[in-house]
Nucleic acid binder design. Structure first.
Lengths: 341, 341
DNA sequence: TTTATCTACGTAAACGTTTGCGGAAAATGA
DNA sequence: TCATTTTCCGCAAACGTTTACGTAGATAAA
């Protein structure tokens, strides 16, 4: 059977393709009777416009790209939900691509996206990315971009982040007030501003409370979780005086739990642990994990909103403005102060 | 500045558009010197082919659609990773759309996908779906589809599942052997085969061990977690003799933990709990949760492989064959038998 | 009446790519 | 030498849309 496209509809209705197209767009240039005829046949034949043909002609894909490191991560999963919600309301599709925190893949993905596939981009930078030429090149393709969470300081555009410095400060302060004196900081090795902010918050909190910053207590984690467990084990064995751990990412907090169980260190008596995390089951852990929880869903929503507003106005270059949402600190068992004796 | 497309390359090289196109495809119809010239300029100008134009002309999008209920779910997140891995290796893009377990959205998404957007589809059916006309209509559009996990029995095509019946049987048996006599079964209300298989495994395990099946012990959960907590609380209060819970999905197991904490029932002494789950932190829960864990990543890989093989051979209709992968049962603290007295 | 405006539709070009066809020049065969 | 094949390239149509422009008829204004 012949495909059901505009030509087919036009033939069966004795109309021109143009009129059918206009009828379906509810143009004022076509009479209401013909509109009805067209719409009737369109639904009868279950006509579906060819999205790519339309994109090609209008130079608009009605699609936004989302480039993130991974999806098996509560934060990004929730952010996607927020993005998708906003996009759907505006009739946009969402094209998700995963970098797996790999620079080469990120470059390749951005290249692909540039070929007219997307109207705009939402992005959380891969931790391995140090050169940003591929991102800057989006300018020339007139593709606006909004960073969220893992922003790129070098590129001036709109950004949605959380108050990472303050949250890290609070988390560290919370550990100090719970009685910790030797606080380790676990982070994923990268030069992204987000990691720097969190580390700075950690450092400043220590200084503000008269503790000195010991660089050997700062551990740079890697991609592989097994390796992280080994690294953390080494650290805790080498420095038995560590009585607090501030994990910059969820995985490192979980790895710390694993190591503590293995070494027989009890949380929170021997070591207190707090970490950035969006884990729903945090309160069900043994012990319940104190967390800094980012408003992931809202971050996604806000980023998408900003991007869609820009697309609406056909602004390809966004003002370098950053919106900061607040994370929430949940105090749970893992950082409970020792009972007064 | 003018856009960099085939026309632009052709002009600058004094060639025809056709030759440039062929050169970039490494056609034998163009000399190796010209190929070099073309490739050189293409990389110099950072030429990126227009994916949609190519799709339109070749009637191929090099894209596979993934339609799933949600992404904030370890199982689906891992499955996506598997899918993405396979797709990337074959040069395919992955277009993810979320149904949020809503029938209307699922229909709308399938409609969109039919408009030439994707070459094939991977799908896990929404729990609310009861009519499958929208799925069957894909046949007419020549779009092959592979179901994974939440398959649709009514549609005959390739399917990738896990051994749900046996896993449920084993999980229930495990509870019985740990000493449980009154075992509740929590599931998400739906008429998908997957839910039926799991329930049947539960029933048969009870019968096989001489327990009778009590329909009032089977609880149909809903979308909202708070509501589920209330439902489970009611159930446990109404039936204080319940000493075991088999949760068909992760969320319901977590909700059970919450309720038990609230009611002061200790796991596993008062109640033992096991559930389907891909939660990485399952062993860190309080107490560590016994799980039936599906090989989510492999499921994604297998489903994608089957689909891509079909696309390779231009087979739009796949033989109704189902591949069954095995889930793994992890015994942890939450189902530990009471110490002999 | 004539002229101008409006309504409703068709014609055709364009978006960027791929590809069947044809053909000129070069290479090969006799 | 001529005939045949091979090599390399251009022309133009096509994919399904959208849209600038043209126009025939109807209506309104003069």
């Amino acid at each position: 059977m012949p495909p059901v496209n505009l030509k087919r509809l036009a033939q069966e209705l004795n109309l021109s393709i143009a009129s059918v197209s206009r009828a379906l767009q509810d143009s004022h240039e076509v009479s209401s009777q013909t509109k009805e005829r067209v719409r009737a046949l369109a639904t009868a034949l279950n006509y579906q416009p060819h999205a790519y043909a339309s994109s090609l002609r209008r130079n608009l894909s009605k699609t936004i790209g989302v480039v993130i490191p991974k999806v098996a991560n509560h934060f990004f999963a929730l952010a996607i939900n927020g993005i998708e919600e906003v996009a759907r309301q505006s009739g946009f599709q969402v094209l998700i691509s995963l970098t797996h925190d790999d620079y080469a893949r990120e470059v390749s993905i951005i290249q692909h996206m540039k070929g007219g596939r997307v109207d705009g981009l939402l992005m959380s930078v891969a931790s391995g990315t140090e050169d940003f030429a591929h991102i800057k090149s989006l300018r020339e393709s007139n593709i606006p971009i909004v960073f969220f969470d893992r922003v790129c300081a070098e590129v001036s555009t709109a950004k949605v982040t959380t108050n990472d410095y303050e949250s890290a400060f609070q988390a560290t302060e919370h550990l100090i007030q719970a009685g910790c004196r030797r606080i380790a900081h676990l982070l994923i090795s990268n030069n992204l501003s987000i990691g720097q902010f969190r580390q700075q918050g950690y450092r400043d909190a220590l200084l503000a409370h008269g503790c000195d910053v010991d660089p050997t207590l700062i551990l740079h984690g890697v991609m592989d979780n097994e390796q992280n467990v080994a690294l953390i084990r080494d650290l805790l064995l080498r420095r038995p005086d560590i009585d607090g751990v501030f994990a910059s990412v969820e995985r490192l907090a979980i790895s710390t739990y694993r190591v503590c169980k293995e070494l027989g260190r009890t949380i929170p008596d021997d070591i207190k642990v707090i970490g950035f995390s969006n884990l729903e089951a945090a309160s069900m852990l043994d012990p319940p994990l104190s967390t800094v929880t980012q408003p992931a869903y809202d971050i996604g929503r806000e980023a998408a909103k900003i991007l869609l507003r820009a697309l609406e106005k056909k602004k390809a270059i966004l003002p370098s403005q950053s919106q900061v949402l607040k994370s929430e600190l949940f105090q749970r068992q893992s950082t409970a102060a020792a009972p007064a004796r």
